[in-house]
Nucleic acid binder design. Structure first.
Lengths: 196, 196
DNA sequence: CTCCCGCTAGTCAAACTTGACTAGCTACAA
DNA sequence: TTGTAGCTAGTCAAGTTTGACTAGCGGGAG
């Protein structure tokens, strides 16, 4: 939500709603339209957003317009870094971060992704270990039923696919793909230039 | 939750909590310990579980013991079928279903998985289509920024990995892997035989 | 023997999420 | 000209989730 408001410079709830719908955010994240207004008010209460104006729109109910604060700007980048480099925040966060990668410098982004690659590789290794453990039939009997192995192989397959993609992505970034924050002014995801 | 109680025959909240922790359910599902007791009570209110007894345990607070009802048994299998065959319920549901696959007959299970394979293949095809669309540079300008493509390739990679795994799994099942419901009495995941 | 740690089993208020609803406006057909 | 379908923007009560707490007991250290 922070990122969406930031990207637009100013936004009201309905705009955020539309952007999120466009990105199919209700699929991979837990954000249905009803949640948005509460979330915006909470972000405003936490001083990450500020209410800029309450326009009495001519084509509908009045709209509250928000803008990101300096504090929110910091939080945005903090969350963005964490969502990319830290696998524990989950795939939903990573997905949410993807639209904003162009707000980072290339070197920084690659560094964060390398971090993620390391963690993912470690997770794959651990899963493989658990898998080998459960291949050897246990004497304990009921302790670890066979289907748990199935969960492990399922995880392993998806984790390895993710790993492959991540490595490929870094390679492409290193080759210069995408206009990132340090490549010029018109990178996507940054707020439009403010007149004044 | 239904499945866990069913599997044990009888269970109180803390047992469920431990089983879910063992399966790392708080990772792939949205189930933290605090939710369990409310969920159990709700299932009981919906007549899917019934309170069997309120034991005054000697090693702690008193425990409420639950057992699945006939109605709950029906719901369990309904949900299980849907979680396996229907991709729209999401990967969390599929993960939750895996521990209980051995409560189904082999033919039935394979049929459900084939269904899932079809849906997954369709999803992969559609994603590939979206990807091709976004490779062609749009004249609309800002409409679909480049990073959206990145999301698509990310999805595609994981979906294809899942597809491979699903096909392999079916092959193994066809070759006779796992003791399923129609292979004998001692399949995992069924309630223990009741004395009396 | 006593103290403290950690386990068992669960409660609870505060926060969050959501589907259903409202109310004004535009555009277009009959 | 009327009606009606659909969009805009948001509210709200009902339900759900959660992190922080409680309170009893066993067992090992000193």
């Amino acid at each position: 939500m922070l990122g969406v408001v930031r990207m637009r410079g100013e936004a009201h709830g309905y705009q955020v709603r539309q952007d999120l719908q466009l990105w199919a955010a209700d699929r991979w994240a837990n954000v249905k339209p009803g949640s948005i207004y509460h979330a915006l008010r909470k972000l405003a209460a936490d001083d990450l957003l500020q209410e800029v104006a309450t326009q009495d729109s001519d084509i509908g109910p009045e709209r509250v317009v928000y803008r990101i604060t300096e504090h929110g700007e910091g939080e945005f980048f903090f969350l963005l870094h964490k969502a990319i480099s830290d696998t524990e925040t989950g795939p939903a966060m990573f997905n949410a971060a993807l639209p904003f990668i162009t707000t980072l410098d290339r070197g920084n982004l690659i560094f964060l992704l390398r971090n993620r690659i390391q963690q993912t590789a470690a997770a794959a290794g651990q899963t493989r270990l658990l898998l080998n453990q459960s291949i050897a039939p246990m004497e304990g009997g009921q302790g670890k039923p066979a289907h748990v192995r199935e969960m492990f192989t399922y995880w392993l397959v998806t984790v390895e696919a993710e790993l492959t993609w991540l490595k490929d992505f870094v390679t492409r970034l290193e080759a210069g793909e995408y206009a990132l924050a340090d490549d010029g002014a018109d990178a996507f995801g940054n707020p439009p230039a403010q007149p004044s």
